[in-house]
Nucleic acid binder design. Structure first.
Lengths: 224, 224
DNA sequence: TCAAAAGTGTTCGCTATACACCCATGG
DNA sequence: CCATGGGTGTATAGCGAACACTTTTGA
């Protein structure tokens, strides 16, 4: 009995965080998956995640998971849903608070056990553990919504990027096709882009966070 | 020790659901608050909520809370955030999964203890228990976002309503002012409204859920 | 009969969209 | 020199925003 030393009057569920990590390789949108080393679902792929510690918030937990798998500390991270189906874990009642993270794929370092982490294109996702396929679909839907209110695309691109890369990213997220000329015109018109001096054809651009902060104050909407 | 019969190897947080119930009285957007009868925060106002039962999902829990306070079973309800700050409850670690519900205010029946439930206008909210002021601000922000993707306004209005009521609702949610003529034109153009036959000046309208379902299939966006 | 509310139409400017041409680069 | 990619401009149509007049209703 020594082992079960946390006792409550009423049953409590376990609480975990899961982190859907999105990256962009210049062409396709990708997610980072971990091959599970333990039961249940040993050997199948899943999102990085784990039990919430008592002294950390869910966001801190998700950031911890993100760091352990990518070495990144300061990425964009957003809670998008808590999954609470009583049967979602075969062992016991586990609810998970799910986040998605947007990372610059080239900054990602292999985690402690890099061998078991791998990037997958969204059109080539393997069978996933637990209800993680549902979590992924949910994350994609929320990401598409989010893009209307925040220029989150910039979180997925390197510091400097071409207009074509930016367009391909938006096309990958929204699953649409834009006219190259109109996309460029629209993006430049918004005013969040800053052309990198001295680079010629193809031009490179940087995201201007100052302008973004100003625009957030006044309120704005990105149309697509 | 009989009392604490649920034991775990690791500490588990408590999990609750809270339900921000929005209603519209034809003029102002309101929320339903409960006066707490027990400590902590006894005597202060809070959202309906309570501990998640082991056999129910969070959404079922939130619906249960909604039913207990309003008598309504089939309202629009949406999870918008899990609040997980380790210090948010002074007693112990409690995370809450928060929902907002949109109800037709005239259908609401007093709950079991109706005396302690009361509608408050958003510009006249009393001091709230726990972190519920933060939860309310969060709910409002999500509601405003949501309105761009779904015609949720209709959930808050009676079956039949005038264009003016619809406009006042949108103005209350978004905290903006629309030109009466342009608002009407735009709303009618979207095609979700059906004019009630036989009613004259002011016309009444009904929401057409069939058209809405068709539009959701094809994907659409409500602009404001 | 008078005031307030509600119905309706027009103009203007902006932006989304469709589309074509020129230039630079590299094989 | 030719093909490809990338930079740029223009015409058109549709929508949002501003705005005024007429009709109806009820006090």
């Amino acid at each position: 009995m020594e082992e079960f030393k946390y006792s409550y009057k009423y049953p409590h569920p376990s609480v975990t965080t899961d982190c859907v990590i999105f990256g962009f390789d210049g062409k396709d949108l990708k997610v980072l998956l971990i091959e599970r080393g333990i039961e249940p679902f040993k050997g199948t792929w899943a999102f990085p995640g784990g039990f919430l510690r008592m002294e950390e918030s869910a966001e801190e937990g998700a950031k911890r998971e993100l760091f352990e798998e990518t070495g990144l500390r300061s990425s964009y991270i957003k809670q998008f849903h808590a999954f609470t189906n009583p049967q979602r874990d075969p062992r016991e009642r586990v609810i998970t608070i799910a986040y998605y993270a947007l990372v610059k794929i080239e900054e990602v370092q292999g985690g402690d056990d890099a061998a078991k982490a791998q990037w997958f294109s969204l059109d080539n996702i393997p069978s996933l553990a637990f209800d993680h396929d549902r979590i992924l679909r949910f994350a994609m839907r929320e990401l598409r919504k989010q893009i209307h209110f925040e220029p989150i695309g910039f979180e997925l691109l390197p510091e400097e990027f071409t207009m074509k890369e930016l367009q391909q990213l938006y096309e990958a997220i929204l699953e649409v096709h834009f006219d190259r000329r109109n996309f460029s015109k629209k993006m430049l018109h918004i005013g969040l882009l800053e052309q990198v001096e001295g680079v010629k054809t193809p031009y490179k651009y940087k995201f201007n966070p100052t302008t973004y902060e100003e625009m957030k104050q006044k309120g704005f909407k990105l149309e697509f």
